[in-house]
Simulated scan of single mutants.
Amino acid sequence: MPIKALNHRARHLISTAFMAALAASVAGCGSTSQMTTGSISRSDRRPLETMSAGELHTATSRLGESYARNPNDKRMAMNFAAALQMDGDADQSLAVMRKLAIAYPKDRDVLAAYGKALAANGQFEPALDAVRRAQTPEYPDWKLVSAEAAILDQMGQKDEARQDYRKALELKPNEPSVLSNLGMSYVLEGDLRTAETYMRSAAEQPGADSRVRQNLALVVGL
């Protein structure tokens, strides 16, 4: 396969993995309030990612109504931003998170989610800054380290990205999402053999989810 075509497909794959890494960082920060994409109402507690397109759009509208009533509610704003992102409205998602980041300038959950929104809009340098500010150096969060690596990969800084992926693996050995993202990094430069090695290892881990297995299948098909 021509390297140009490979890079185009690899970019799509790494972008998908990158968003997953940032989503994990948002859910996993160690502050007092953790963001979830959780329920829209007491009668519907399904995660947003399990909804159909129509259901997601309806859920996003409901979240928007709740957000309008109380835009400074951190959890509501973050849920609304996540729903907007999944519903294809990255610009409005970023606007919601930018406003929230002004209200909560030092909140780790907010900074991580803001970084995700920035990155989804292609603003990688400010995204990297936000994710780094969400990190606590003395107690590093492996999910944020992995998210930082994914952003660096998007910026073409593969050596720095892989250093961060390996740091994340030191903090969380054999974590399938990190192994998968590290494999994606090698896909970007066309090293499919190394990529497949990491991604097979990721898929074999007990905690591997369907996304990790799907990424492996896509790489094998390149």
Results as ranks from 00 to 15, higher is better:
144 L>D: 08
200 R>L: 08
195 A>W: 03
2 P>Q: 07
178 V>C: 03
85 Q>D: 11
47 P>T: 03
221 G>L: 13
210 S>I: 11
28 G>N: 14
5 A>L: 10
209 D>V: 09
180 S>N: 15
96 V>Y: 11
195 A>M: 02
194 T>H: 08
49 E>V: 13
100 L>M: 13
64 G>K: 07
185 S>F: 06
28 G>C: 05
114 Y>S: 04
45 R>A: 11
155 M>S: 07
133 R>G: 04
109 D>W: 04
208 A>L: 04
196 E>V: 15
125 E>S: 14
98 R>N: 08
98 R>H: 11
83 A>T: 11
78 M>R: 03
122 G>P: 02
64 G>Q: 09
78 M>I: 09
20 A>C: 03
131 V>Y: 01
181 N>P: 02
111 L>F: 07
52 S>F: 00
196 E>A: 10
115 G>N: 06
20 A>V: 04
203 A>E: 09
6 L>D: 01
118 L>P: 03
19 M>W: 12
135 Q>S: 13
114 Y>L: 08
28 G>V: 00
131 V>C: 03
135 Q>K: 01
128 L>H: 11
44 D>P: 02
112 A>R: 04
154 Q>V: 05
138 E>Y: 07
28 G>W: 01
67 Y>F: 15
16 T>S: 12
200 R>N: 11
47 P>N: 07
152 L>Y: 03
209 D>I: 07
73 D>S: 13
219 V>L: 12
139 Y>K: 14
216 L>D: 04
175 E>N: 13
179 L>W: 06
205 Q>C: 05
70 N>I: 05
18 F>A: 12
160 E>M: 14
217 A>S: 13
148 E>W: 02
211 R>V: 08
169 L>F: 02
209 D>P: 00
136 T>L: 13
2 P>C: 01
208 A>H: 03
13 L>T: 01
98 R>T: 14
204 E>T: 06
166 R>F: 02
200 R>K: 15
212 V>Y: 01
93 S>K: 05
134 A>I: 10
144 L>Y: 07
189 E>N: 14
42 R>M: 09
59 A>V: 03
75 R>C: 05
130 A>H: 05
120 A>Y: 04
101 A>F: 02
191 D>Y: 01
200 R>A: 02
31 S>Q: 10
4 K>N: 04
72 N>D: 11
43 S>T: 09
197 T>N: 12
150 A>P: 04
197 T>S: 13
23 A>C: 07
19 M>K: 09
186 Y>F: 15
42 R>W: 11
12 H>F: 02
47 P>D: 06
133 R>N: 13
203 A>P: 04
134 A>S: 14
83 A>I: 10
125 E>Q: 14
52 S>M: 01
146 S>M: 11
65 E>K: 13
